[in-house]
Simulated assay, not measured.
Amino acid sequence: MDNEKINQIEKILYSEDFNEALTQVASIEDSEMLYVLAANYNWDNGLNIPKAIIANDNCDMSTGLMIFYLADGIRLLDDKESVEQSGLDEWSEFIKKVYLLIEMNSLKTSRVSYRPELTKVQAFKLRKANPDLPAIFLEGIEGEDIEIPAI
């Protein structure tokens, strides 16, 4: 990824003008930039940027799956009821929406890979508890590994 794209991602991540950051995310046309942005996002800053990434038409399955796991989506796979009773309504709705986008194959396909960081035991338990769980949530997406610069 070239320096110009990295600088644009950096501006979004460190922008003090929240509305401008959201506008910039919406204007990104490169799915790899969305992937790198999601990988570097500070989740302590809330869900608005991840929501904007998911809403971008150029968001791909790899980015969506990464966001699902970075947003602690494993909790939804592990115990859906506890997510619904968590009292974290915005997060709960977000994570369920991302799950559905992935399950329905609503995000575009790209050449970028993403593999969830699950142990064999975690994958086994999830598979056992959710026999109908789409394989993508356990196996990830095959493709090209791209370098994620730390921004």
Rank of each mutant, 00 (worst) to 15 (best):
N3G: 07
N3W: 10
E4W: 04
K5C: 04
I6V: 14
Q8L: 13
K11Q: 15
I12V: 08
S15N: 06
S15T: 04
S15P: 01
E16Y: 09
T23V: 10
I28P: 03
S31C: 14
S31L: 11
S31P: 13
E32K: 10
E32C: 05
L34G: 02
V36C: 08
V36K: 11
A39I: 10
N40C: 02
N40R: 00
N40D: 03
D44F: 13
N45T: 09
I49S: 05
I49F: 08
K51T: 11
I53V: 03
I54Q: 07
N56S: 07
N56M: 10
D60W: 02
M61Q: 05
T63L: 03
F68W: 04
L70K: 15
L70G: 07
D72E: 07
L76S: 04
D79S: 06
K80H: 08
K80P: 02
E84N: 05
E84A: 06
W91H: 03
W91M: 09
S92G: 14
I95E: 08
I102L: 02
E103I: 01
E103S: 09
M104F: 11
L107P: 02
K108D: 05
K108Q: 12
R111T: 14
V112H: 01
S113N: 14
Y114C: 06
V121A: 09
K125Y: 12
K128H: 14
A129T: 09
P131W: 12
D132P: 08
L133C: 06
I136H: 00
L138V: 01
E139S: 00
E142R: 00
G143Q: 00
I146K: 02
I151C: 10
